[in-house]
Design a protein around this nucleic acid. Structure first.
Lengths: 333, 333
DNA sequence: ATTTTTTTCGCAATCATTTTTATGAATAAA
DNA sequence: TTTATTCATAAAAATGATTGCGAAAAAAAT
């Protein structure tokens, strides 16, 4: 059902129908009523493509997620979607699969007028290769975009991150306050900035307290065979605490520690960067640092929509928003 | 950069540029070359909205997911996205959040010409309320759509599901073949058809072997406080096997069983409907029935694109595709 | 009764693209 | 020399919607 068809049935012009539906003062109350009734009857919905074309606004936001199976990103997506829907925006979701090439393709694809703006976390490969030209192209094209969690220093745009350093510091400090002496760190996402920052926080707290860093207490590895590696890590060091800086190894560590007859939290205390949904896979429940992905997502989305609505770049650009992590106690200490 | 602007720079008409870029035989080789060079120089990309409008094709697929935090759906989305991308389609993702109202809103929203077709799993509330009029509206509008995993009997459309009954049966049988006698079942998604079917399979195997069903061995509950409930369930019954028919309780059960000093798989064997990514949260690793969400997703997407391309409904409509589950052995038996 | 004002509505342009039709010139055939 | 054909390109129509402007009609004021 189009305006044209409605107009024909009503014996008025297309523009009258359009104006009536938009409550124009140019149209009489009577006509407006007639038009609206028929439109409702035929379930008329304005065609999205025509609207986008006319107004050069798609009311659509492109979201590029490195890995939707990562619970953090799934939750961030929920936050983005909620905020977008609230403001009358749709989201087009692309998955970069941590690949630079796919990320570039996605951006190329989305800049054909499909979306008004973009929200994304940078793919791991992109960070490793230090490539950012495809993002700078967005700046040239004047397409607003917001980076979240994984951001690039040299791209001047709005960003939303968490206070990773402080989170690592706080978690480590909480171990220290419990009297823990041999505090290990598990890092299997070393390529990412967030990992480096969290580790920095850990190191700061350790050096501040013990004067020096024991490199043997830091397990830097890939996710492959992570269970065996953690087992060895636990066996080789007499740890009484572990900080897991990604969102899966904390849970795995707790389960393995239990199977090795560690008593939790008596013998060993574990903190992970997971959330309650993942933490329930651990028994007793893991203590977690909530990196608040939903808040990050909704904040990023809000920020983008702000730029889209006030289509002028104001003095606040580029804005860096730092979200506070929340420590939430499970049963592990 | 638009056709118009290119045309101006080249001193030719808009139509010439358009035809040149589409390799029309009406245009001389020389002109084609000139046009393409300039288009490449200015990074010209055809405007999506204009294209969609003109061709009444958006090359976009709408996907409605009940809950993206559910690993099954996240993985299904990966399958859908991969297949869509392969065929030059974008996906618009909506989250129904298991709510009927949101699902209806999403469908209303997506039928404004945003998408060529839809893929979705029905929201839990929709199934409980047995509402299907919003899907039937899609049939009236002639918008192709494919349902996956959670489907409605009375909506005549393409569907992709797994052989739930058989999966439940096979899993239970494998316990029986190990000589297990007291086989429990945990069901915390009872509202869903898939749960009923899996349980049917379980019951069939049990009755076939033992003659009768012991209702006490079936834990039907909500996800709240699931850990405590499973603990009680294990304590009150001398189980030697558990079939967890959703994708989280298997992992939880294994961890709790260990904490209760059960030896796995000697004392108790556990099978869950999770996948390897979730199974690694259990130690030793859970044996899983892979419900193959990515295959379901890609199959559903393939099916939809088939309908979109051959825009005639052929004799195969409506097609029901049943995906086989795969049992993959972890360390639990 | 005439002019002015207000109300109500239609025309036409516009967005970026594709596609059908038209145009003018060169070439070939009659 | 005339007519038909081919060729390269331009012009126009169409997709579905919004919107400024102008026109007609109705109402109000003189």
């Amino acid at each position: 059902m189009t305006l044209k068809q409605l107009a024909k049935k009503l014996n008025v012009s297309i523009s009258t129908v359009s104006k009536a539906l938009n409550d124009s003062h140019e149209i009489s109350k009577d006509t407006i009523k007639r038009v609206k009734e028929l439109a409702a009857l035929y379930n008329y919905v304005p065609n999205k493509s025509a609207l986008s074309l006319k107004q050069s606004k798609t009311k659509t936001i492109g979201v590029i997620v490195p890995n939707i199976l990562n619970h953090f990103f799934a939750k961030a997506l929920v936050g983005i979607e909620k905020e977008a829907t609230k403001n009358g925006y749709q989201i087009i979701v692309c998955l970069s699969n941590e690949s630079l090439k796919k990320e570039q393709d996605n951006i190329q694809w989305l800049t054909n007028g499909s979306v008004d703006g973009l929200i994304f976390a940078v793919a791991e490969e992109t960070i490793v290769e230090r490539e950012s030209s495809h993002f700078k192209k967005l700046l040239d094209l004047n397409i607003p975009f917001v980076m979240f969690d994984r951001v690039l220093e040299d791209v001047k745009t709005d960003k939303v991150i968490i206070n990773d350093t402080e989170a690592g510091y706080k978690a480590t400090k909480s171990f220290i306050n419990q009297g823990r002496k041999k505090i290990g760190l598990i890092n299997c996402i070393d390529n990412l900035n967030v990992a480096k920052l969290r580790q920095t926080g850990y190191e700061k707290a350790i050096i501040e307290t013990f004067g020096e860093l024991n490199q043997k207490l830091i397990l830097k590895t890939s996710i492959n065979n992570i269970q065996d590696k953690i087992k060895m890590f636990l066996n080789e060091n007499e740890l009484d605490a572990i900080l897991a800086i990604d969102n899966v190894t904390g849970v795995i560590a707790i389960n393995i520690a239990k199977s090795l007859k560690f008593s939790i939290p008596k013998d060993i205390s574990i903190i992970g960067f997971a959330d309650s949904l993942i933490a329930r896979y651990a028994y007793p429940t893991l203590t977690t640092l909530d990196s608040r992905p939903d808040l990050i997502g909704s904040t990023a989305c809000k920020q983008l929509i702000h730029r889209l609505d006030s289509n002028q770049l104001d003095s606040t650009f580029p804005k860096l928003t730092v979200i506070d992590t929340k420590i939430s106690s499970g049963g592990s200490f």
